[in-house]
Design a protein around this nucleic acid. Structure first.
Length: 877
RNA sequence: GGGCCUGUGGCGGAAUUGGUAUACGCAACAGACUUAAAAUCUGUGGCCGCAAGGCAUGUGGGUUCAACUCCCACCAGGCCCACCA
């Protein structure tokens, strides 16, 4: 009587029925009194490769959770859409001369067909696409909100630019000064930054196209080039992006990765006065001040030289002022650094540098004159782009000092020794403590002695020296971040046009709201131009426009937005996807936000997750998101893992081990596919694909099918309530465990419990109708098609997926008898089958009668008797 | 170099607060049905040993009546960041 689950006849039938009946369509506030549940998976980039078997793993996982929530009585929203701007479509367009929009449309159709064949309960009435002008209109509108706002440090929030107070001295300098002041504060601003430039292809590359410092297209080495780019001031939110994580439930590793990426470090900025070395010039020409950042100001007595990054502004300035004696060497070094690729920097960490001859810096603490160098181990982009080198307490400085034979002064201060660097240097025996000689303080103002910090532990010493620096105006305490501002320009075609106009007279001006969206024009060539400008730059008709303020001829911005733009706010659009007046109504946002559960890959933890949190906070601060939604968009964040090829290696075309979801669905059906992906291992861990493993899951569902078949065949018309059944405790245990496991994303153990229950039910000669229905219900999130078919065969006209989740009976979880293991000195020696409620006294007495126990006790009286109810009885002799 | 994670049978993996290690599934073996095979069903199964018993959760220590679980040190593998002062 073995029957195979006939998925081919069943699955597409129910998929159509569900869609036609709107089973998964979420109701808007006002149409329902139910509480909401918003489950979200990262929307895919519809690549030409089609769906990967990794996609369904997370789609199914969140599908299972949202199905259960719906059965628990929530108004569930589980939407899906397309993050469809991006490089692959554009590169394909360049190669094959097909419009990216056409390629994208085709890919979306494929993805949608594939996802729909899986029976995932997405609300397709809310489908969105980032390349749809009706969508990117709002992406552009939001960019303008960034442009029209500034960050108020005191209030720690973004505010409209017209609330920016203009200081009197700026106001006195006239309109131009006021305008510049405003522009310098905007959340979106244009700035010169370095981009990756491929000299062979003559194009600017995105970071992801220039991985490892090599051009993705030609394999050539990528150079750095300076270009004006639109930037978003995410660094202003660095503190809040860390602090406000406290209010959300993120997986620990996601939280720490975000915090590390932002990279907050506390320390001090210290000013070193620079002077010409020649004593005759002293006092006549001033070299200015070099500001450095350090996390260890307490080691200042060991600072024996300064290092600037080769790109440091002051270097060129000094050359112009003819202060540098070896200007030629210095310029040569600057040039080599500029040409150095990231690869070279990474592979060769050998220290290089050039001394700036002709100038010296004064250590403000002890007044000593120290040399100034430039070296590429100091990064222009971090801190002030300059450091005080303390070779005795920093390994990099130490290496550098050894190589160029610079002074190394060990600060005699025990607390400094706890630093890993100095410790390892000391144990290597390479460092002899050197006491600073008193005569080197001579001549330079407010010098103090290094005894100043003696005996203080690091934190106290740091505080004391900062106080001293502040009092004497040599520096101040400062916090620095690794996080950089967000480079928002791309010289590409397939992205949202940045809605800005440049006017000779008014400067940069935002396009008026009524003119949005700024549509992507049709172009003939998708290649970026030789000058590194966007392909849009050659569209003279499109570029030419008039200034929204003064009306004279003006030009459009030709750069487009990065991929990350559309995905920074898509979860807001789902709340109200067809709204033509706003990106979403207040009412819809108040009801749906924040997202209850957001799932995505670890690879998006640092970029997408951070960007979208930032984007949301700015909109929130500006009042575009209701207060009641809170400052964070995602209430909880979880992460899926990868599905590997057979044998545990990454799936790739070149290895030929790619599994196509279509083939799996064709051969086994969607329910088997879903259950298999949930059963293969813990959800948050990588798991290899196993063709045999899927066979086992198929057997399981076949078993369920024939069980149901048998049950329905001798189905009673009315529900019976017979309750003396052997499977009962297993059933109630399963209701509890499957429910708990779903909430905790432990899908693999939920399925194993369902297998155990199925095996048990198979042995039973009679199953009560109520019990059988509970069984089908708890299976339904995993195998939605099969269970729907069974459900309707049981006579129901409504979907099983809107039925209610069964409740387990606590009293039925407890079995009447249990097996207790009896241990002697922690080793199991006997098993006793006893009534669950047996008392400690009784079981001890019983155990002592047991032959094996008697043997191992060897007539000795136990020193200790430990009984853990229903589990273990341990005799210690 | 820094951060995070993982080591349990032939394989994927279970083990809720420390309480019978190896659930569930795969593969394997034996049997039933069949002319035969597939499918299905029943059974066996950590390792050594005839057995009694002993040894087993990467390695070595520790805490405990009791450790996959907690602590310390180490080894192996993976991922991310990487000259971040």
């Amino acid at each position: 009587m073995a029957k195979t689950y006939p998925f081919k006849d069943i699955e597409s039938k129910w998929q159509k029925w569900w869609e036609a009946n709107g089973v998964y369509h979420a109701k808007q506030p006002g149409d329902t009194d139910l509480k909401k549940y918003y489950g979200l998976v990262e929307f895919p980039y519809p690549s030409g490769e089609g769906l990967h078997v990794g996609h369904p793993r997370s789609y199914t996982a969140i599908d299972i959770i949202t199905r259960k929530k719906r059965m628990n009585g929530f108004n569930v929203m589980y939407p899906m859409g397309w993050d469809a701007f991006g490089l692959p479509a554009e590169n394909f367009a360049i190669k094959k001369k097909v419009h990216p929009a056409i390629v994208t449309e085709k890919n979306v159709a494929t993805f949608k067909r594939q996802i729909q064949s899986l029976g995932t309960g997405f609300d397709w009435s809310r489908e969105i696409n980032t390349t749809d002008p009706a969508y990117y209109k709002w992406t552009q509108w939001m960019f303008i909100q960034f442009y029209e706002s500034w960050f108020d440090e005191a209030a720690q929030k973004a505010k409209p630019i017209n609330e920016l107070h203009i200081p009197n001295d700026v106001e006195e300098q006239g309109d131009e000064a006021v305008k510049n002041f405003r522009d310098s504060k905007r959340m979106a601003f244009k700035q010169k930054t370095t981009i990756n430039w491929c000299p062979k292809c003559k194009i600017g590359l995105a970071n992801e196209e220039a991985q490892g410092g090599v051009c993705e297209r030609c394999g050539g080495v990528v150079e750095k080039r300076e270009k004006y780019q639109w930037m978003l001031r995410i660094t202003k939110y660095a503190d809040r992006l860390i602090k406000e994580l406290d209010g959300v439930d993120y997986l620990d590793k996601i939280r720490t990765q975000q915090i590390n990426w932002i990279g907050r470090s506390e320390g001090a900025s210290i000013d070193f006065i620079v002077q010409p070395k020649n004593p005759f010039d002293k006092g006549t020409i001033s070299g200015g001040t070099i500001r450095v950042f350090t996390t260890r100001p307490d080691t200042i007595f060991g600072a024996t030289y300064l290092v600037l990054s080769p790109e440091h502004q002051l270097v060129s300035q000094w050359i112009d002022e003819k202060l540098i004696e070896n200007a030629k060497d210095v310029q040569k070094y600057q040039e080599t650094t500029r040409k150095k690729s990231d690869i070279e920097r990474q592979e060769n960490k050998e220290k290089t540098g050039v001394e700036l001859k002709g100038i010296v810096a004064i250590n403000p603490a002890n007044g000593k004159e120290i040399p100034v160098w430039i070296a590429d181990y100091v990064l222009a982009g971090y801190g002030t782009g300059a450091i005080m080198a303390v070779p005795a307490h920093d390994e990099r400085d130490f290496e550098f000092a050894k190589k160029f034979d610079l002074t190394i002064i060990k600060v005699i201060q025990p607390p400094a020794l706890d630093r890993v660097a100095s410790q390892s240097l000391l144990t290597k025996g390479e460092l002899e403590p050197i006491k600073v000689e008193p005569d080197c303080f001579a001549g330079h103002g407010t010098a103090i002695n290094s005894d100043f910090l003696d005996g203080l532990e690091t934190t106290k010493a740091t505080k004391k020296i900062i106080d001293w620096l502040e009092k004497n105006k040599h520096g101040k305490s400062e916090v620095n971040f690794k996080l950089r501002d967000w480079v928002f320009s791309r010289q590409r075609y397939w992205g949202e046009p940045i809605p800005m106009v440049h006017c000779e007279h008014c400067g940069w001006v935002a396009v008026q709201d009524s003119e949005l969206p700024v549509l992507l024009p049709e172009v003939e060539k998708y290649e970026p131009t030789d000058t590194g400008e966007s392909p849009l730059a050659v569209m003279k008709d499109w570029v030419k426009t008039t200034c929204p303020i003064c009306g004279i001829d003006a030009e459009r911005e030709t750069d487009t937005m990065p991929n990350w733009a559309g995905s920074s706010w898509y979860f807001l659009r789902y709340c109200d996807p067809n709204n033509k007046e706003e990106f979403a109504s207040d009412r819809a946002l108040r009801y749906w936000m924040p997202v209850d559960l957001y799932n995505g890959g670890m690879e998006h933890t640092t970029l997408h997750l951070l960007y979208s949190r930032f984007w949301y906070k700015v909109l929130f601060d500006l009042g575009h998101i209701p207060e009641s939604c809170g400052v964070e968009p995602y209430g909880s964040r979880r992460s899926h893992a990868m599905i590997l090829g057979e044998g545990g290696v990454k799936m790739s075309k070149s290895k030929g081990n790619v599994i196509n979801p279509d083939d799996v669905v064709e051969k086994f059906g969607a329910d088997v596919f879903r259950c298999y992906e949930m059963f293969m291992g813990p959800y948050d861990m990588d798991a290899p694909w196993d063709t045999n493993g899927i066979q086992g899951v198929k057997r399981f569902l076949d078993k369920v099918w024939s069980l149901a078949d048998g049950h329905i065949a001798n189905n009673q018309p009315t529900p019976d309530t017979e309750s003396d059944n052997s499977y009962e405790s297993t059933l109630h245990k399963a209701i509890k465990k499957v429910g708990d496991d779903i909430e905790n994303l432990h899908f693999n153990t939920a399925i194993s419990q369902l297998m155990i229950l199925t095996n048990e039910l198979q042995k039973a000669d009679h199953i009560n109708r109520n019990d059988f229905e509970s069984y089908v219900k708890i299976l339904s999130p995993f195998a939605p098609h099969l269970t729907e078919e069974v459900w309707q065969k049981l006579g129901y006209k409504e979907s099983i997926h809107i039925s209610s989740w069964p409740v387990y009976d606590e009293s039925k979880l407890i079995e009447e008898t249990v097996t207790v293991a009896v241990q002697i000195n922690g080793k199991v020696r006997a098993q006793l089958l006893v009534p669950t409620e047996i008392s400690e006294k009784e079981i001890i007495a019983m155990a002592k009668q047991d032959g094996k126990v008697v043997k191992y006790l060897e007539n000795k009286e136990p020193k200790k008797e430990i009984y853990i109810k229903g589990k273990i009885l341990n005799f210690v002799v």
